[in-house]
């Protein structure tokens, strides 16, 4: 009842509890609450994103807050109150902002690489420094033989998709967001793909009797 009067008065509404927020953000939406939330998101996003944005930070965070608000309103029913509403809402806004920045950073980088096209990368892994490339295989150290075996596991046991993902994430150093876009998948599925690859390598190492510690101790 008190809230009803507050909203009717339209000047002193308070949103101290999650219940008040949820009620205000559900249809019919309380515009005053949306405006307050937008301001809070902007206030939080500025210090969180400033190091990633070199110009027009204010405009950028306002756009991000606006896009995030739409997602927050669409998903308000999924908020179960495990934290303050602002914490949950800010999480959505931060992901929105960083996802946008990662895509932009990659677009800029792609333009640079377009100007200097690199060798078309295959998904096969090879290395000139390994035992098979030595003039005399007997010259190979034990460590090189073990590493060659690992390389064989990667090449023979992983799928092309797994190799492509590992190459993009670990060699090219691209973000999960960007690689997921490139592979027409999503972050979660990409993580699972690489997780399965890691488990496969681990299993095959165990079957081959290779102790990972051995590789690191020989450095």
């Amino acid at each position: 009842m008190l809230n009803w009067f507050k909203r009717r008065g339209n000047d002193k509404a308070s949103y101290d509890t999650n219940e008040e927020w949820i009620k205000a953000l559900k249809s019919p939406v309380d515009e005053q609450a949306v405006d307050l939330l937008r301001k809070q998101l902007i206030r939080g996003l500025k210090p969180a994103l400033h190091k990633y944005v070199d110009r027009e930070l204010d405009q950028f965070v306002e756009d991000v807050a606006q896009d995030a608000l739409l997602k927050i309103l669409d998903n308000i029913d999924s908020f179960r109150g495990e934290s303050k509403l602002i914490t949950w809402a800010m999480k959505i806004a931060v992901r929105e902002g960083l996802t946008e920045l990662r895509r932009k950073r990659y677009d800029d980088r792609s333009m640079e690489e377009f100007k200097r096209p690199s060798e078309e990368g295959r998904n096969e892994f090879t290395s000139i420094t390994f035992s098979s490339d030595l003039p005399n295989p007997n010259d190979a150290t034990h460590e090189q033989l073990v590493l060659q075996k690992v390389l064989d596991i990667i090449n023979n046991e992983l799928t092309d998709k797994q190799k492509k993902a590992i190459k993009a994430l670990m060699i090219e150093g691209l973000s999960v967001t960007v690689v997921a876009d490139q592979m027409n998948t999503n972050r979660n599925a990409l993580y699972k793909l690489v997780h399965d690859a890691r488990l496969k390598i681990k299993e095959k190492l165990e079957i081959s009797g290779i102790n990972p510690e051995e590789i690191f101790n020989n450095q």
């Binding site: 090879t126 890691r198 488990l199 190492l205 690191f216 450095q219």
Partner: peptide, 19 residues
Amino acid sequence: MKITQDFIKKIVGMAAQSR
């Protein structure tokens, strides 16, 4: 494509720590 021994070691390390 060519990769380094350090990279292979990194993959092995990540695989070994997988759960």
